[in-house]
Simulated assay, not measured.
Amino acid sequence: MLNLQTYITEILILVFILITFLQSGIDKITDWKGNTGWLKEHFSKTFLAGQVPLMVGTILILEVITGILAVVGIFQLITTGELLFALYTCILAAITLLMLLFGQRVAKDYVGAFTICGYFIVVIFGVYILS
């Protein structure tokens, strides 16, 4: 119980990442056609237009891995106080968000890009306090 109190901020950030990324990954799995269809239109006037299925697949894999790492990180923080997987989770989440931000900027979806910044702030704070 002491680790739960000691690392509560880190654990809450990891729970945030877990919910955000795992839900997004599950949504892509359960509605692949809907997601890729919408994104094909979203990127239709960009140099990424022909790469949508590859991009969605890449993001899907990163989101699921990030969600799994978050579970491992939470477990390790609570049981042993080990920070390594928690840090890896936040770093991978930051990289994934930067990829998403790049896509939104290329598509000139500035509102969508701005929304990602809120997630990025939480994640980069996690990187900061865990490193």
Rank of each mutant, 00 (worst) to 15 (best):
V127H: 00
L87R: 06
E82N: 14
I26H: 10
K40Y: 01
I116G: 07
F120C: 02
Q5E: 08
V111K: 11
V71G: 10
E82Y: 10
T66D: 06
D109K: 12
D109H: 13
Y119I: 05
L60Q: 06
I17W: 08
E82V: 11
Q5I: 11
L130Y: 08
I26T: 14
F85H: 11
D31W: 05
V122N: 04
H42Y: 15
F21E: 09
V127P: 01
I91Y: 07
Y128F: 14
T66K: 04
K108P: 07
Q76L: 14
P53H: 07
L4P: 00
A93L: 06
V123K: 03
L12E: 00
T89W: 11
G73C: 05
R105N: 13
F85W: 14
V56D: 05
A86H: 01
T36C: 12
T79I: 08
L98A: 14
I26P: 13
T115V: 15
E82W: 01
L54R: 09
K28S: 07
I26L: 15
L77N: 07
G37Q: 10
T96Q: 09
Q76R: 10
L39D: 02
P53Q: 06
W32F: 15
I11N: 00
Y88E: 08
L14G: 02
T115W: 11
M55Q: 08
T6L: 10
L100Q: 09
I74Y: 10
L39C: 02
A107N: 11
T9H: 04
Q104E: 11
I68V: 15
L97D: 04
R105K: 15
K45S: 13
A93G: 07
T20Q: 10
T58M: 11
V111H: 13
Y119N: 11
E82A: 13
N35W: 08
M99K: 05
I65R: 05
A94D: 14
V72P: 05
E63G: 02
G34M: 03
G112F: 10
I124R: 00
Y119F: 15
E10G: 01
I74H: 05
I65M: 07
G25Y: 07
I61A: 13
V71D: 02
R105T: 14
M1A: 09
E63H: 08
F125N: 07
T58F: 11
T20M: 12
I65L: 12
A93N: 02
L60F: 06
L101S: 07
I17E: 09
F75P: 00
F21L: 01
L62A: 14
I95M: 10
L60E: 00
I95H: 04
